[in-house]
Amino acid sequence: MTHTPTLSEDDIQAYVDGRLSASRHSEVDAYLDNNPAERERIRAYQDQNALLHGLFDHVLDEPTPEHLVNVTTLKPARKLYRVAAVMAYVIIGGISGYVLHGNDTKTVIVQAPFTERAALAHVVYTAEMLHPVEVGADQEPHLVQWLSKRLGHPLHTPELNKFGYQLVGGRLLPGDSSGAAAQFMYQTHTGARLTLYVSVKDKGTAQTAFRIDEQDGQQVMYWVDDNLSFALVGEKDRNRLLDIARVAYQAMSF
């Protein structure tokens, strides 16, 4: 009397996904009423879809990590930084005699050493009002995880509240040939900024205790451990700078 529709596996999948026409959907429904085992199997597939949404839809509500938005929106700033960096390398190199002009006008640019890169990154990014960091402090665990992965060593964000500095966020920077570098930025309530620059240790660099280096009128407090070089820039008071360095050293030694 009633004709039994032949049911293909494609129909079943489309039924699960709610992609059948209304009339075909009711035909399949009618068929399933007489086939409880098939009904059960299809319910299991529908549960899979529901579970996927239950488990992963919350990702849609998360703020997009800033470094991803930056891929499409921050091109001018990045370009500017590259130009600034190259110019600074050339200028620093020129002063230090690193740029060698031979008679054949061949130019050799030696990449700026670690403390110079730290001071340069400080100057460039503390001046950025709009996008001082790629990933903000509101995503601190994500920031730390991301930069740790990019540098290949576990990093931590030192707690510097007692010095009046709060974490603003951080960014990934080009390092030297040994790999990437990270910059964490801190700020006081008056807007004074301090940066902690971390780079994979240059090959052949020995470990050092805390040292001060002057770069472009900036005091750079730096130290080198087994794998990483650290530099703090932005605090003028040497004693405070040393105290901050001690806290940062402790935090990073976990």
Partner: peptide, 13 residues
């Protein structure tokens, strides 16, 4: 906003 941006959340998911 760049046309890619509205798709980032679902790409991440």
């Amino acid at each position: 906003a760049h046309p890619f941006n509205e798709h980032i959340p679902s790409l991440r998911r």
